[in-house]
C-alpha cells in the first residue's frame, strides 16, 4: 500500500529525470560446453586431487555379475536383483519379516550394469540419492490400488515371491509370497521414503505411517552385494515372470 501512496511522486521524479533502462537484449545459443572448449588448467588442477582420491575409492570392486543386467519394463533382471537385495536387507534392518518390496522404474539411475566386476562407484551411480528404506503396514486394498498405478506406469520392479499381470494398464492376479492378494489383510512393505511420501505419483501411500530404518537404498544394495561377494556368490538375475504384460 505504501507503494501506491508514493507512486505519483515516483512518476513525477522519473518523468523529470533520466534513468538507465534496459532497452534491448539478445541471447546466445547455450549449447556450448563441449570438446571444442579447452579446459582451464587452473580448474583442472583443483579437481585433480579430488578425482584421484575419488577414482581410487570408486574403482574398488565389491562384486561380480555373471551376466549383464539391464533396466527394462515391465520386468527386468536388474530390477529383480535390486528388489531381492533390498528385501533381504530390509528384513535385517527391521529385525522382522517383510512381505515384499518394489522399486519405481525411474528410481534406477543406470540403464545397465555390465557383466564382470561391479565397482563401488557403479553402485553409487545406480542409486545416487539418499532415499531411505522405510517399513509400512499396508492393507490389501491399498496394495491393489498401488499395483494398478504400477501397471499404469508400464510395470515396476518387485521382489521375489511377488507377481502381477498387466492388461490395458491395469493390474490383476496380484500375488504376495506366492499367494493371491487378500484385500482385507495387512501386509508389511519395505519401500523408499520417496515413494512412501507419494513420490512418482504413489498418492495411495502418502500419509500411511511408517518406520524409518534410517538406511539408504544405496547402502542396503552395497551391503547386500558385499555380503554376497564375501560368501563367494556372483550376481545372477533373470527375468522370471514376476510381471506378465498381456497387452
Amino acid at each position: 500500500m505504501r507503494l501506491f501512496k508514493f507512486l505519483p511522486l515516483l512518476f513525477i521524479m522519473l518523468a523529470s529525470c533520466k534513468q538507465y533502462l534496459p532497452t534491448q537484449y539478445s541471447y546466445k545459443d547455450s549449447r556450448n560446453v563441449d570438446s571444442t572448449v579447452t579446459s582451464l588448467a587452473k580448474i583442472e588442477n583443483i579437481i585433480r586431487p579430488y578425482k584421484t582420491a575419488l577414482d581410487k575409492e570408486m574403482n574398488v570392486v565389491i562384486g561380480y555379475a555373471d551376466t549383464m543386467l539391464t533396466k527394462t519394463q515391465p520386468e527386468s533382471d536388474l530390477g529383480n536383483w535390486m528388489c531381492d537385495v533390498m528385501l533381504a536387507k530390509s528384513k535385517d534392518y527391521y529385525k522382522a519379516d517383510v512381505d515384499f518390496t518394489f522399486l519405481n522404474h525411474g528410481g534406477i539411475r543406470l540403464p545397465s550394469l555390465a557383466k564382470g566386476d561391479i565397482t563401488y562407484g557403479k553402485m553409487i551411480e545406480l542409486m545416487p540419492f539418499d532415499n531411505r528404506i522405510v517399513i509400512m503396514q499396508i492393507k490389501g486394498t491399498t496394495i491393489d490400488s498401488l499395483f494398478n498405478h504400477i501397471a499404469s506406469k508400464g510395470g515396476w520392479h518387485v521382489s521375489k515371491g511377488t507377481s502381477y499381470a498387466i492388461s490395458n494398464g491395469s493390474a490383476f492376479d496380484i500375488r504376495i509370497n506366492g499367494e493371491p492378494l487378500k484385500m482385507d489383510r495387512i501386509y508389511t512393505l519395505a519401500v523408499s521414503d520417496y515413494l512412501a511420501q507419494g513420490g512418482d505419483n504413489c498418492t495411495m501411500l502418502k500419509g500411511i505411517p511408517y518406520i524409518d530404518t534410517r538406511k539408504t537404498l544405496r547402502d542396503a544394495l552395497i551391503e547386500g552385494l558385499k555380503e554376497a561377494t564375501a560368501r563367494g556368490e556372483h550376481v545372477r538375475s533373470i527375468i522370471e515372470g514376476r510381471v506378465i504384460k498381456l497387452n
Binding site: L10, F11, L14, Y20, D29, N32
Partner: peptide, 27 residues
C-alpha cells in the same frame, strides 16, 4: 550449457511511460 543474455541500457526520460522494454534483438 552456459546461458548468456546481453542487456543494453540507455539513459531515458519518462521511464515509466515506456512499456514493453526491453526488446529482443538478435540471433
Amino acid at each position: 550449457y552456459l546461458g548468456r543474455l546481453d542487456f543494453y541500457f540507455e539513459e531515458k526520460k519518462n521511464a515509466l511511460l515506456i512499456s514493453g522494454i526491453p526488446k529482443l534483438v538478435s540471433e
